[in-house]
Design a binder for these strands. Structure first.
Lengths: 351, 351
DNA sequence: AAGACTTATACTCAACATGAGCATAACTGA
DNA sequence: TCAGTTATGCTCATGTTGAGTATAAGTCTT
């Protein structure tokens, strides 16, 4: 490795989320990335563009994959990580993000194909941003894509997804059975049951990352094959679940969903995704879209209204298709009143 | 800056937590660190030991400060971040950590005095580890120190801490008033009220990090003065709250407390801090120590027993000082039964 | 213009969870 | 034996949650 190669590069990755037409969508950039070839596995110089610069079309071939907006931290220029992230997003998409939250930092060497091409060690910090769906700058090749395309088993709004019982559960069962020792099988089975709500265990909507990690380990997602040093030719597509992404970006999106599904319960973050005023059904649809579960309409209304999360504006919306609905807005005072203002949960009192 | 200086260094920091005598304690290493001098602010070569190596006594003077075990990521050797952390902890303390959880990644340039001495950019990843209090290897200068020494306003077990009303609230009020514009004052006041439960707002035990960040901004913690490029001589100690730490380590500990106080509510992590069998009062005392609030004994028992979190072993403990108590152990099956098994919270059903 | 359909909103009721307290049991030490 | 200490069982009022009924007020179709 050449001496002037930096040892470590910090990659900043943004899951830019908006909800439109009752679908949570993330902003993705289709990118052509170098394919790891079995022959030249340890040799060959790295195409530096893929690592150092953002999406400036690298010289590599192969079909494009979805990637998140991302770029490295400039140690000399960027004063904070968040400012660096905002800069990259602006540069690559033309969008100005509002609410930003750090998710997690990933640094496994073996889960990034770039590491095998002689590039520097990449440590990626994932961020989640919330906002409304805006059109990227002209000339930017960005796509707002529903996040359930990457995680079809996570959408329970119209009942338990068919893919679960029909395809995922059998594939996972095979993975459990392919273990040699029975203790190992029992351990795998328990992990599968808890993560996917099988074998009598309940479905926990927040375990999105657990489920993705398990699928990766069981080699049921495309990324797992891509990352294997001596991968056999890609197996039948039928055994890959959900749409794959470049780098470790799907893992970062899984982290984002997990985090957000947890957070809406105790912090009023949903409102970042809504216009200043909205009907209660609009609000409900957004929460349902994020949580991936249907909600009882009347109870939801009681929750947010009696809970002091929203207040009526007096205005009414006409385009409901039925009786006009009152327009509500977020009630900021709730932050002073309750410790955990979110969609569900009790309060605490001062004794 | 010399060309072979790495641009970015990843610092891995461990908050090693155990609870003994009803006090949560973290393992700290007293270290002598270079003092930032006003004269040589931008010049001077960095003492590389303070950054590159762990606590190998640097050549610098000044009195020692508390620091967490930490060390840089070795991009070539360490396969994962967590393995690197375990290695550093082992090397510096002789301890083998069990449960490990990543907290947050900090990268603000201006909040690390090392950055002003010409060293590389440090990005610190904080980790939390849970276990029992073990004695560090002989020869290691490590101290288990109660975390409430760093955050005395966080311990509400014996009622509202006196320091809050007597010293913190007035100091914060001064900070609010010292703003020029009234809109700025109103904004500061709202932040103070929400973070510290003043002005009628409730106390939210989880906002530990918010409170520390606010104190830092209001220059009411020692670290704020240390980090100022042109700091006036340190003001009277009377205006600093809690025991200070080196680097940004107190911020990392604040993150740890916030995270843990949230997590015990929905994941059975408390048991990592307890022996395999314990009495219910022992369990309660540990939860109280972490949450910083007293709990109703009978209700707590009902919660963990009916909630299926623990099961009786039939054995009894004699050293209670009163009637002997039954010994309980963690009931692993609860993971299969409830989505969020912790100290408090409802369940979800499968329809 | 009537009737079907859609969405909004109010209200009820049972099941369950939570906060607070009373009562009794079983040990220790003076 | 009595006071002090902790353990454990039980009650009761209140709050929260899940599910459903009923009615209001629009749009669209014929």
């Amino acid at each position: 490795m050449s001496p002037e190669t930096p040892q470590v590069v910090i990659g900043l990755n943004a899951v830019i989320l908006a909800v439109t037409d009752e679908e949570p969508r993330i902003l993705t950039l289709p990118r052509r990335l170098p394919v790891v070839d079995q022959q030249q596995d340890e040799g060959g110089a790295a195409p530096p563009e893929a690592v150092d610069k953002g999406p400036s079309a690298g010289a590599s071939s192969s079909r494009p994959v979805d990637a998140l907006p991302f770029g490295p931290l400039d140690a000399d220029r960027d004063r904070t990580l968040e400012l660096a992230l905002r800069g990259w997003v602006r540069e690559q998409t033309g969008l100005e993000v509002g609410y930003v939250e750090q998710l997690y930092t990933f640094g496994d060497r073996h889960r990034d194909p770039r590491q095998r091409l002689g590039g520097p060690r990449v440590v990626s910090i994932g961020y989640l941003t919330l906002g409304r769906q805006e059109t990227p700058a002209t000339g930017v090749n960005a796509v707002w894509r529903p996040w359930y395309e990457y995680f079809p088993w996570e959408d329970w709004r119209r009942g338990r997804p068919l893919i679960l019982a029909q395809r995922l559960a059998p594939a996972l069962a095979r993975w459990v059975e392919e273990s040699e020792h029975s203790s190992r099988r029992a351990e795998r089975r328990e992990r599968v049951d808890i993560a996917f709500g099988l074998g009598g265990a309940p479905w926990d909507a927040e375990r999105v990352l657990d489920r993705y990690e398990l699928l990766y380990e069981a080699q049921l997602v495309g990324e797992a094959w891509r990352d294997m040093p001596a991968a056999s030719p890609h197996p039948v597509e039928d055994r890959h679940f959900g749409r794959a992404m470049g780098f470790d970006h799907r893992r970062i999106v899984a982290t984002a969903i997990s985090r957000l599904r947890g957070k809406i319960k105790y912090r009023p973050v949903v409102f970042e995704l809504l216009p200043p005023t909205f009907t209660l059904l609009q609000l409900q649809r957004v929460v349902e879209a994020l949580a991936g579960t249907p909600l009882h309409k009347q109870n939801f209304r009681r929750l947010v209204e009696k809970g002091g999360l929203v207040e009526g504006t007096g205005e009414v919306s006409s385009g409901t298709g039925g009786r006009p609905a009152e327009l509500f807005c977020f009630r900021r005072d709730v932050l002073r009143e309750r410790p955990t203002p979110g969609v569900g949960l009790p309060a605490l009192r001062t004794p």
